[in-house]
Amino acid sequence: MIKITNLEKFYRTEEVETIALNKLSMEVNTGEFVAIMGPSGCGKSTLLNILGMLDDPDAGSYVFNGVEIAHFNERKRADLRKHNIGFVFQSFNLIDELTVFENVELPLIYTGVSSADRVKRVEEVLDKMQIMHRRNHYPQQLSGGQQQRVAIARAVVNKPKLILADEPTGNLDSSNGNDVMELLTDLNEQGTTIIMVTHSEHDARYSHRIIRLLDGQTVMENIMV
């Protein structure tokens, strides 16, 4: 599904140039659950952003589902993104002014799903995430675990092929964290490819494969059994 080759990304300020990704190459197949680990500043968030088409590489190739997209402009990337990728963030990033239902509904609005279909699909997902009873609440009224479940619901409502999770349990206690990991595992078992950045060895053990980064390069790959 994803094949990146010699991917490079630099950050420049007036005086320093920081190499975030240094000729990085990797492949992720459809249906995989991959964890990316490494110390702070190793480039894992940069990688995730490029994979999620939120950012573009300075050099190298990025083939998504057989299409080279490294040179895509923002509009084309955005279009590809909204139909294929769901995001889960450490800080949930729900919109405070919208209810649970409306937050989850939002991606469907932007992809132009009809109103009746939207209600059906949102309810389905909320049911699956077991937060149906909170559908009319606002994010501030929920616990962290519940908020992350809403965020996951929002990430999957459009049935994306790929979910990118950036430290999804970072702001949660261990019990809520485990629930979230179970949810991601379920989604993966139903066929969604998942790439997750994490600091937690515990969380990483849910994945099939761990890619360890250091200074913008792959230093090790562990295949989980």
């Binding site: 999620g52 139909h83 729900l94 939002l106 932007y110």
Partner: peptide, 13 residues
């Protein structure tokens, strides 16, 4: 900014 970004990431043009 956060709200706008999320909308964009989710797919708002």
């Amino acid at each position: 900014a956060k709200e706008v970004s999320m909308r964009k990431i989710i797919g708002a043009g």
